[in-house]
């Protein structure tokens, strides 16, 4: 069993096709939509948590790539600018997914991108604007 958070970029030509439906029917994958939008004439973006048997998951991802969907790990698109972050910790209680943790000894704030759900709340709540969402 595997669960991953991924970002899918759909080219314009695929906007009218039932792609997520096929992930469920043909590859037996579970999905949870974290974020989605379609820009007219430009294609779409879908942030998904995708779960299933390892083999099915791999085949599902291959299917997406084959038809022209760009697949990226969510962690590649949520970035903390470490030069900007002061480790103040005001983001810690704001994050609904508990992706920020304070290391008790040094008081440094660790960002666990595997927990991030890309809601973007931290981006504007960070006083030094150290968090970036790049999709």
């Amino acid at each position: 069993m595997i669960t991953k958070r991924i970002v899918l970029h759909f080219p314009h030509r695929l906007a009218d096709q039932p792609i997520v439906y096929k992930l469920v029917k043909d590859y037996d994958l579970e999905f949870n939509i974290l974020k989605a939008y379609i820009a007219p004439e430009k294609g779409g973006l879908l942030v998904l948590e995708l779960s299933g048997e390892d083999k099915n998951y791999e085949q599902g991802i291959q299917y997406l790539k084959r038809i022209g969907v760009k697949v990226q790990a969510l962690s590649q698109d949520i970035i903390r600018n470490d030069r900007r972050c002061s480790h103040c910790s005001v983001c810690v209680p704001i994050c609904p997914a508990g992706a920020f943790l304070v290391e008790p000894l040094t008081r440094e704030v660790h960002f666990d991108d595997s927990k991030c759900i890309a809601c973007g709340v931290c981006v504007k709540a960070c006083p030094l604007r150290a968090m970036e969402v790049r999709f």
């Binding site: 103040c88 910790s89 005001v90 008081r107 440094e108």
Partner: peptide, 14 residues
């Protein structure tokens, strides 16, 4: 029980 956050950076103060 309420979670806390600091606006002032302790690591930078150190």
């Amino acid at each position: 029980e309420v979670p806390t956050g600091n606006l002032s950076s302790y690591p930078k103060a150190v």
